[in-house]
């Protein structure tokens, strides 16, 4: 006997296409359903257009330098991975391999991401939980930096980091012209964002959990390490990822600071493949390069976005 409270599968399929809700209530009329579908399909086409274009270009088997006709289906006329193979060998005229570029961007992004959460979490905790003189002032100090785009502190960072220069075994090391210098400049902008982002999450962890730990004999500090810190793992991961993502595709600081090809980052290579310097670069190379840079972060972002997009704090302002 079918359960009378639960409609059969076929009924539910019928209701679905009649535009009813799962309980069979009247939903949309057929006319507005069709209109909505047409509009939403148009938006879907607009969203997919650049993505399909760049994906098909990267697989284009015709081996031409510029796409002379529109091609949106990657499978049309066969696929080739030649562009990817060329890119992996040497993406630009600079003597640096894709592996080296990726390694540089990866190091930069990982280390600044980790540094920003390790240094930031303590301050986030203090702002979220502890009461002390000067709390408001210091919070405003953090927010002020947050408001400012990272490029707006570059003149001073460039000049100051450039002053740090010393000899190591006959080789001159200039902090500005190194990945460490870029990392410091990036951290200068990403740390306030990390502090603010993590504070927002700590605010949502119930205070009672810590108070219970205090009653059970924890000191305030060990309550932080044993209760709050483990509970904030999700926000540590998300903050790390957001920091990673923005540094992975960071352009202005690296371009300004770095002159040695073996320090170059992915975005610097991509910049050499578009615009004024790109006359000799086949667009299939550009497309393959864009996809190789975007794909890793896009996939991770797809999985984690549901946890924070939408609730994204004003903290995301930092570019």
């Amino acid at each position: 006997m079918p359960n009378p409270g639960k409609p059969s599968f076929l009924t539910r399929v019928r209701w679905y296409f009649q535009g009813r809700t799962s309980t069979g209530e009247r939903g949309m009329s057929f006319g507005s359903q069709i209109l909505s579908q047409l509009f939403l399909l148009l938006m879907a086409a607009i969203v997919l257009y650049p993505i399909l274009w760049v994906v098909s270009m990267s697989f284009d088997p015709r081996d031409i330098s510029r796409p002379t006709e529109l091609r949106l289906n990657p499978f049309q006329g066969g696929l080739t991975l030649k562009a990817y193979a060329d890119i992996i060998k040497q993406p630009t005229a600079n003597p640096v391999s894709l592996g080296q570029l990726m390694f540089n961007s990866f190091r930069l992004a990982t280390l600044t991401g980790i540094a920003s959460i390790i240094v930031g979490i303590f301050a986030s905790y203090a702002f979220s939980r502890l009461r002390f003189a000067g709390r408001q002032t210091l919070m405003i100090a953090v927010l002020t930096v947050l408001m400012l785009p990272s490029i707006a502190t570059l003149p001073a960072l460039f000049v100051l980091l450039n002053k740090v220069q010393f000899d190591i075994g006959g080789q001159v090391f200039n902090l500005r012209n190194s990945l460490i210098g870029v990392g410091l400049a990036v951290l200068s902008g990403s740390l306030p964002f990390a502090i603010w982002n993590m504070k927002g999450y700590l605010d949502t962890i119930p205070k009672e959990l810590e108070e219970a730990a205090l009653i059970d004999g924890c000191t305030p500090n060990s309550a932080f390490f044993r209760v709050t810190l483990p509970l904030s793992t999700p926000v540590l991961a998300v903050t790390f990822f957001l920091g990673f993502m923005s540094t992975w595709t960071e352009y202005p600081t690296s371009w300004l600071f770095l002159t040695n090809p073996k320090d170059f980052t992915l975005m610097m290579a991509l910049y050499n493949m578009v615009g004024q310097y790109s006359n000799t670069t086949p667009w299939s190379h550009f497309a393959a390069m864009s996809i190789l840079i975007a794909l890793p972060v896009t996939i991770v972002y797809l999985f984690v976005q549901r946890y924070f997009v939408g609730g994204l704090a004003i903290g995301g302002v930092k570019g």
Binding site: Y16, G19, Q33, L40, V47, T249, M267, S290, T298, Q305
Partner: peptide, 26 residues
């Protein structure tokens, strides 16, 4: 997207996230 009884809601929701997750600079 929030109207009752709209078809393929999940499909559109999944697709429309793409401009957020692809790095802006790319």
């Amino acid at each position: 997207l929030n109207r009752q009884g709209l078809w393929f809601k999940g499909f559109y929701r999944a697709l429309y996230i793409l401009p957020i997750v692809v790095p802006q600079i790319i």
